[in-house]
Design a protein around this nucleic acid. Structure first.
Lengths: 206, 206
DNA sequence: GCGTTTATATGAACATTGTTCATATTATGT
DNA sequence: ACATAATATGAACAATGTTCATATAAACGC
């Protein structure tokens, strides 16, 4: 389930024994769970340690600050989102299908991991550069993918399209969380509203 | 410049004398300035009070908690954004124009007040309910407005449209901040990419 | 004007937080 | 089996959000 980080993360000291990894994942898992219900400043380090059955000192072996644990969660979510997207898009053959399945993957990921918004958008309050890098890099790879399917697009401005599509997915995911949507409801929203929107537009022209 | 809140805000005790209002705006003004550079958790109540030349006790006359001051700032941005939107949309006669001018108003507001993302999205790291209330109420009023122009829409699902359009505006605003766009560049993006998108869609259908 | 009440100002004091540290225990390599 | 590195622990510290008793200023009735 948990995948060990490949590249080093500033402020995070990765364990070197199995016992260490157990404690490490106990801490990150407990933190993620606590952040789902409460916000960053409502969760204390001792809350996290109590939930993970560790002492406070152990926390500071692996994370230099409480913020660094948060930074680790950002990187981990980024990896998981990209993986979920590439897996769901893989079998698709048209851009339309890729947009539908990509949007669905993101929305369902959001429903299953509502904390993703706290982590990604909340990164604005932690490290603005981290936040900007996240979306700029996401937009670039999105634009690259759209360029490959450019003959299937109405408009050649793939960068604006990328931001618009990221915005749509992000806010539909937000709504899905707010309304605790089931997968069937998400499918319905995508088929009855999202697909018509990207196929025909929003405003009916005479 | 400052406009006194009309409706009561939970956790905020509005002043009843001129001296009170002076201190109140000194506190909110200092806080907004401090939150532009640092995040909610990095700014202490004593930082705010020092910048506003008030004692800590005075802070707690007007705000029950530090979070309640933040809540006031969110409400103030909401009011300013809604005002900017309604002013820019007022002269429009079609839904298409309203979407263009509404989107432009939001993007230009973002460019002129980049802190808006720190405050609104940062509210996730402060009070999740505050964040949810902001977007749920925004979506509702957006959907209400779309319903009035329903004969001009391709699709009757105004709630999904609201979230999608909020997403597009939000992310185009984000891009405009990242790339420090000028008003001319924003106009170009809206005319060459945003308008075609909502008029004809994104995927070219056979 | 004067007296009373309400509103506001103040910073020391308190409880809780993020963080550090000295010390004890466990794992690893030879 | 031993030495070294890695990990575990919770009491102690500095800083934070908040409260409170006390002092000053404004508002109001007469």
């Amino acid at each position: 389930m948990n995948q060990r980080p490949s590249k080093p993360i500033p402020g995070v000291n990765l364990p070197k024994t199995q016992l260490g990894w157990d404690k490490f994942y106990a801490l990150t898992g407990a933190a993620e769970k606590l952040f789902t219900r409460s916000s960053f400043h409502e969760v204390s380090v001792s809350d996290i340690c109590r939930a993970a059955h560790t002492a406070v000192g152990t926390f500071y072996i692996y994370f230099e600050t409480k913020t660094d644990l948060y930074r680790y969660l950002v990187e981990d979510y980024k990896r998981r989102i990209k993986q979920s997207l590439s897996e769901s898009i893989a079998p698709c053959t048209t851009r339309l299908e890729r947009e539908r399945e990509g949007c669905k993957a993101f929305v369902m990921f959001s429903v299953k991991n509502p904390t993703v918004y706290n982590i990604i958008w909340g990164s604005l309050a932690v490290d603005k550069q981290l936040f900007k890098d996240y979306y700029v890099s996401f937009a670039k790879s999105y634009a690259r993918a759209l360029t490959e399917d450019r003959e299937e697009l109405c408009n050649p401005d793939v960068m604006t399209l990328s931001y618009a599509l990221m915005g749509i997915s992000s806010f539909l995911g937000l709504r899905a969380i707010f309304e605790k949507m089931s997968e069937a409801e998400v499918d319905k929203m995508l088929d009855e509203s999202f697909l018509p929107m990207i196929k025909e537009g929003i405003i009916r022209m005479p």
